[in-house]
């Protein structure tokens, strides 16, 4: 499909009120595929919000360039920039609906000055409200809606100019888990049906896991790791990435648990962790080693999910048997397409 958004060596500095320079983004390189859902994750203050606002020119880079469909956003005059913004919808954590306008008027606002006739506007808005599942809310004011409904209205408003890109700035961070899941489902559906490119910034790894194909990890203004979501989840390199992934995984046992009496080992027992790296099938590894090498495999923790049609996660187990059986089992496991980590010996 090709690249739709590209960052080339983008730096962004702010001059604070006391004339101090504050570097928000450092040498950011990024390429986002057209039609994909791309996530940017980082803690508060990492520069995510600034980064996403460079795409629609609300912020301008101090150096470097941001290309949207091959055109540098910074090179556009006022009129062209406004034309570009109509092709890039955006939704926010706090929804930003106009309180004095009805749901219908809110959704119609971006095309109100576009020269479209009233009938066309009515058709478009009605269609979009159906698409986001709020056909009966056209004439109510935003204050009467729930958070999830407000975000649906915001999504309809963001889509009314038929954009090619949808920017989501912490769009689910103010919502409860169930509503978050519903909104993510809606975004996935829009991506699939309309082919719209989606860029998400979030501090929740779960959002990345549920929604995105590509991801970049932002730490203090720098992209420390990026790539395909499965690869990043199955084989994270950076400590920050591991920290984020740990928030969605149950496999990382705290050291106190590993050291506790619960996991006291005896004989030739070993506490091991196996994780999927990039396999396409879940092999019956545990049954195999217990039959073949006569070891007992006591599963302590298990967390396996399917991400992008591939298994992700793993097991923490205690291998129990004689010395040879345990060694052979470990050797066998090492030869498989999994990662093996011995957490503790007897």
């Amino acid at each position: 499909m090709g690249t739709i958004i590209q960052f080339n060596h983008v730096n962004k500095q702010f001059t604070r009120a006391d004339h101090q320079q504050l570097t928000v983004l450092k040498d950011v390189d990024l390429a986002i595929e057209a039609g994909s859902i791309f996530g940017i994750i980082g803690y508060s203050g990492a520069g995510k919000s600034t980064l996403i606002r460079l795409i629609n020119g609300i912020e301008t880079p101090t150096s470097g360039e941001v290309l949207v469909k091959g055109v540098a956003v910074g090179s556009l005059d006022h009129q062209k920039l406004r034309d570009l913004r109509r092709k890039i919808g955006m939704i926010f954590q706090q929804f930003n609906l106009m309180p004095s306008r009805t749901v219908f008027e809110n959704v119609a606002l971006p095309i109100r000055f576009s020269g479209l006739d009233q009938a066309t506007i009515r058709t478009k808005v009605t269609h979009l409200l159906e698409l986001v599942g709020l056909p009966d809310k056209a004439d109510v004011y935003p204050a009467t809606l729930s958070g999830g409904q407000k975000q649906r209205v915001a999504i309809a408003r963001a889509l009314v100019s038929d954009p090619e890109v949808l920017l989501c700035d912490e769009a689910t961070s103010a919502l409860d888990p169930q509503t978050t899941a519903d909104i993510l489902q809606l975004i996935r559906q829009l991506n699939a049906e309309l082919g719209i490119t989606v860029v998400v910034v979030t501090h929740e790894m779960q959002v990345i896991e549920d929604l995105c194909q590509g991801v970049a990890v932002l730490d203090q203004g720098q992209i420390v790791e990026s790539g395909n979501v499965y690869n990043l989840f199955s084989d994270p390199q950076q400590p920050l990435t591991k920290k984020f992934i740990a928030t969605t995984s149950k496999l990382d046992l705290p050291q106190e648990v590993v050291d506790s009496d619960l996991l006291t080992l005896s004989g030739h027992q070993q506490l091991i962790k196996i994780t999927y790296v990039n396999s396409t099938a879940i092999e019956p590894l545990i049954s195999y080693i217990s039959r073949q090498f006569q070891v007992n495999a006591n599963i302590i923790v298990g967390d396996i999910k399917i991400l992008q049609q591939k298994p992700l996660g793993g097991l923490v187990i205690i291998l129990d048997g004689d010395q040879q059986a345990v060694d052979q089992s470990l050797a066998y496991l090492k030869a498989q397409k999994i990662r093996l980590e011995v957490l503790k010996h007897a």
Binding site: R82, M90, F92, P110, F113, A158, L167
Partner: peptide, 22 residues
């Protein structure tokens, strides 16, 4: 709320449109 002004900007409204519509 500055968020309302920003959403006027991101939807491509002009300065005059933001002044009167937002």
């Amino acid at each position: 709320d500055p968020g309302l002004v920003e959403s006027g900007q991101v939807m491509g409204l002009s300065v005059w449109q933001i002044i009167h519509a937002v």
